[in-house]
């Protein structure tokens, strides 16, 4: 349950900063504002510095276990194809997975429709993945 609070924090920030807004996503893809790029850029910068500090000082997690972040496999095909399919959906719905949850909490019930189909899309991928190039 200790992950409930970080989730609440993220959902709150995502709504208040309009990261979850369809309008902001369109604005981003039209290159009309720094808003989304600034948020993603600064998030990556802070994440990168924190990770460097965690590695440099070999910090442990709450249970005292060493923190390790595995490298991702270098299999370019899946990132190019899968990433592009995700991008098509991202621009269509105007929200990525995290924001969809936040929008439902914010009272935008219609987001349950793309969420249900994201669930089905995940299921379909899992069922046919052996047939797909990776």
């Amino acid at each position: 349950m200790k992950y409930l609070l970080p989730g609440i924090f993220f959902g709150f920030v995502a709504v208040k900063s309009e990261v979850v807004s369809w309008f902001r996503i369109q604005e981003m893809f039209h290159f009309d504002s720094i808003h989304m790029y600034g948020i993603i850029g600064l998030a990556v910068l802070v994440g990168m510095i924190s990770l460097q500090l965690i590695k440099r000082f070999q910090l442990k997690d709450l249970s005292g276990a060493p923190i390790s972040v595995a490298d991702k496999d270098m299999t370019p095909k899946r990132y190019i194809i899968g990433g592009s399919i995700f991008g098509l959906g991202w621009a269509l719905v105007g929200a990525c997975p995290g924001p969809m949850y936040a929008l439902v909490g914010d009272g935008y019930w219609m987001m349950l429709v793309p969420m249900f189909f994201a669930f089905l899309g995940t299921m379909t991928y899992g069922m046919i993945r052996e047939k797909l190039p990776h």
């Binding site: 899968g82 959906g89 269509l92 719905v93 997975p97 994201a118 899309g121 995940t122």
Partner: peptide, 8 residues
């Protein structure tokens, strides 16, 4: 759109 997000 939702399907592409989950699948992709």
């Amino acid at each position: 759109g939702g399907f592409f997000i989950g699948f992709g």
